[in-house]
Simulated assay, not measured.
Amino acid sequence: MDDLTGFQRDLLYVIAGADQPSGQTVKAEIESYYRSDINHGRLYPNLDTLVNKGLVDKGQHDRRTNYYEISDDGRRSIDERQQWEQQYV
C-alpha cells in the first residue's frame, strides 16, 4: 500500500466498506468525504490502478454497470496499514 496515493488508499477503504459498489457509489462516497466533486477522469483511472495492482476485483452488475470488490491482497494491505498506523496513533 506504500506505493498508493492518498486518493487511491481512500478509494480502497471505501470499496472495502461496501458490498460490491458501483463506480458511481464509490464516487458519491468519496465526494462526501472530500466535500468536492470528483470527475470521471480522476476516479476511473485510479480505480483501474487498484484493479491492476490486484487490490480490487472488478466485475459487472449488468452490461452498463461495473462493481468493485476488495481482493484478498487488498484486505491484507488494509490490515497491514492499520497495524502500522497503530504504532503511531
Rank of each mutant, 00 (worst) to 15 (best):
T25K: 15
P45R: 04
Q83L: 09
D62N: 13
D62Y: 08
G54L: 00
R9D: 02
G74M: 02
L50T: 11
R9F: 14
D62P: 03
Y33D: 01
S71T: 15
Y67F: 15
N46C: 05
Y13S: 00
L4R: 11
H40R: 10
R42P: 01
Q8F: 05
S36T: 04
Q20R: 15
V89F: 08
V89Q: 13
F7I: 03
Q86S: 15
G23Q: 03
Q86V: 01
R63C: 03
L43H: 01
D57R: 03
D10L: 01
E31I: 13
Y13E: 10
H40K: 08
Q20P: 05
I30S: 02
G54R: 03
M1Q: 09
V56F: 01
I70V: 15
D48L: 05
Q82V: 13
Q8N: 00
D37R: 07
S71L: 13
G17E: 09
G59D: 08
Y68V: 07
Y68E: 09
Q83H: 11
T65V: 14
D57P: 03
D10F: 00
E31P: 06
Y88F: 14
E80I: 06
Y68F: 15
I78A: 07
Y34D: 10
L50S: 12
D72G: 01
Y33L: 01
Y88H: 14
R9K: 03
Q24K: 14
I70P: 03
S77H: 07
P45N: 10
A28W: 06
D10H: 01
S77Q: 10
R63E: 10
Q24P: 02
F7Y: 13
E80F: 03
D72F: 04
N66G: 04
D48K: 12
R81E: 12
Q82F: 11
E69Y: 04
D79M: 13
P21K: 13
Q24H: 08
D73S: 14
Q24A: 12
T65D: 08
S22I: 02
S77W: 06
D2G: 02
Y44T: 05
T25S: 15
D3M: 04
M1R: 05
M1H: 11
D3Y: 11
Y68A: 09
I70A: 00
I30F: 00
E80H: 10
I78W: 07
T49Y: 04
K53M: 12
Q24M: 15
D62F: 11
Y34C: 07
L47N: 08
L50A: 06
Q60W: 06
A16Q: 12
Y13A: 09
G6E: 12
H61A: 06
L4K: 11
Q83M: 09
D10I: 00
Y13P: 00
R42Q: 08
D57G: 06
G54E: 04
D19Q: 12
Q20S: 13
E29I: 06
D48M: 00
D57M: 01
I15H: 09
L55G: 10
K53Y: 14
Y33V: 03
N39P: 02
D37V: 04
V26G: 08
R42F: 05
D3L: 09
K27Y: 05
R75C: 00
N46M: 12
S32E: 15
L4A: 07
D72C: 01
L55C: 10
D72E: 15
R81T: 11
I78F: 04
T25C: 10
D37G: 01
S77T: 12
